[in-house]
Design a protein around this nucleic acid. Structure first.
Lengths: 352, 352
DNA sequence: TTGTATGCGTTATCAG
DNA sequence: CTGATAACGCATACAA
């Protein structure tokens, strides 16, 4: 590992000059010197020491990415294809922009804060963080932050949220169910904060349009955690006879439940319709293919990184709460029900 | 951000003493001083600057993780659930051990090398790297390296490979197909190096046991790249009539193909049987559930990190080529064929 | 056009 | 028990 000083010594010039050549500040250096330095640069394949650079400047070129792992939700959070694809897009864009990515998925916010501070990370991308945690982070970390899938009230602290038309997506999906004659719709979420809450609002709005009052007992929360999940699914299975459709907050859950239910004799969509959210690969692959709300995780990741880097470079961001578009994707998991919207007419045949 | 020097000044003592207290070298410091320092530590929530530490020591506490993205294979490599779950496990273990994870997925090896050198990464975990690339990296990077899914010849350079019983897995799977009466089996891979090659060896060995000579035209390579893939699948579709079973090198491809084929009228497993490799979540979820070879990505990630950290700490690793166990998981995607093993008897009904 | 000197925060050496 | 000082590699303000 050759250093600037080594090269300066070899050429009998100062480190300043070498440094200037490296950074292209070649206007003040004679062409001859430039050539000699560049020759050495190539020859020894000089690689700068970023710890040193980071120490002497204020910036580290590191972007921290953190997913708040909901405790024990899956084996690990990356099992959710939406997160992993999004993360892949973020990584690619960070790299393309010449930054480095440090990743941290724990749910220990204090530890996250220490990590971020200890490396003097230039900017932070936070996925699915809740308001309280965000406040904690903001109080100690002063650099730019971009949120994804967050509904933190803006308050005083500045951030940018790269969000989604969650409300609209849920609204349109619910409308679709209603149009197909469904009246007894369960809304499935795995929490009631942030994104899922907003989707529920959209759901309610669509119901209201049809003069249906949302009933809180139709709001079903799936227990997270590998062990609780099984019990939770069983419970949902028994409740399912009260509904004609399960509207899920993510493809991940939709697909898991569809599999569980169909193993127990429920025919989809004949006995029970399903919808998802995200449009991950698997929803196109399973049969029946899942009717869902499409979003573009690649674009989202890129936008998040672009925005963050703009903030790092001191640009003003006009829109601190962008909402990326969603699109209803109708596939085969929603049954058309007779004009009366009568529910469960041929249900019990399939159950048990 | 308070520094050691700040605290030393506040207490009127030297930085050395503060540093000693921080590192628990308390044997040479009076209890009174220890208490005073620790009080400040808490009060200001001191966080060390890791760039500085990394500069003055030889170690950075960073572990680099790199997946060689095969050019344009997917939208991004993380779309493959096996990789993403493995990565999640690696991240969790790195964190648990007090290290930091820097990730890099490009296929530009030179760039990877620069990244690793510029941060003076303590150790490297490389996923799915090929021999030539490994040699390049080794020539410039001298710290410990752990390989996952690699079959680089050991040569002189030292590394540890955390592998899998690939040969055995493929052997057993092929045997399973043979026992169920299949004789015309296509072997599907997306490359013929490393892991997939080893699996092919196992496949051949099983065929040999049944006195069947492997025919290279039964070795089907799926074109990577989003655009080529479509054409490739179509081609495979037309070739499929020659076979009773498609044995795939990953669940990912198996599942993709099953979906594509069944949309075109091929019934699985009645018309064509499928097997996979990895046992990712999706194989349990699709119908028919996929017969596949199970491996444990969580354990694998943990072992990789554990081994690497041992190497970093200078311990000798007894086994530089561990092969984690696999297990055949029989589900519903393989048909039982009459004792003659006649192929395609009821095939053309479903095709076209 | 080039060089000198300094500081970034930490650890380590060595002397008191 | 404690402290001064150097060193890590780089960038920059300031001289020459």
């Amino acid at each position: 590992m050759i250093t600037i000083k080594d090269m300066a010594d070899m050429l009998g010039i100062s480190t300043t000059t070498v440094s200037n050549v490296i950074h292209g500040k070649t206007s003040e250096v004679s062409q001859k010197t430039v050539d000699r330095v560049e020759k050495l640069l190539k020859e020894y394949d000089y690689v700068p020491n970023n710890s040193a650079r980071s120490l002497s400047q204020k910036c580290s070129k590191i972007i921290g990415v953190s997913i708040k792992g909901r405790k024990g939700q899956y084996d690990n959070i990356m099992a959710d294809p939406f997160f992993s694809v999004l993360l892949g897009a973020i990584e690619a864009e960070i790299r393309r922009r010449g930054y480095f990515m440090m990743i941290y998925t724990s749910d220990d916010i204090q530890e996250l804060i220490r990590n971020v501070l200890t490396w003097n990370v230039d900017g932070l991308i936070l996925l699915g963080i809740l308001h309280d945690d965000f406040v904690k982070i903001r109080s100690r970390y002063k650099n730019p932050i971009v949120l994804i899938d967050s509904y933190a009230p803006r308050d005083i602290m500045n951030y940018v949220n790269v969000g989604l038309e969650d409300e609209k997506g849920a609204y349109e999906m619910t409308l679709h169910l209603l149009e197909r004659g469904h009246r007894r719709i369960a809304f499935l979420a795995d929490n009631m904060e942030g994104v899922d809450y907003t989707r529920y609002i959209g759901h309610q709005r669509a119901l209201a349009k049809y003069g249906i009052k949302a009933d809180s007992k139709d709001l079903l929360i799936i227990q997270r955690g590998v062990t609780e999940m099984e019990a939770s699914m069983e419970e949902l299975y028994y409740m399912s006879r009260n509904y004609t459709a399960f509207m899920c907050c993510s493809d991940y859950w939709a697909v898991l439940l569809m599999s569980y239910f169909s193993d127990r004799g429920i025919r989809i969509p004949e006995d029970l319709s399903f919808t998802g959210f995200d449009d991950v690969l698997i929803s196109r692959i399973i049969r029946p293919a899942l009717t869902t709300v499409h979003q573009d995780p690649i674009r989202r990741g890129e936008l998040a990184v672009d925005t963050l880097i703009k903030m790092i470079q001191g640009e003003e961001i006009p829109d601190w709460d962008v909402k990326l578009p969603v699109e209803l994707v109708i596939r085969d998991s929603v049954k058309r029900i007779g004009s009366y919207g009568g529910c469960g007419e041929d249900r019990d045949a399939g159950v048990k």
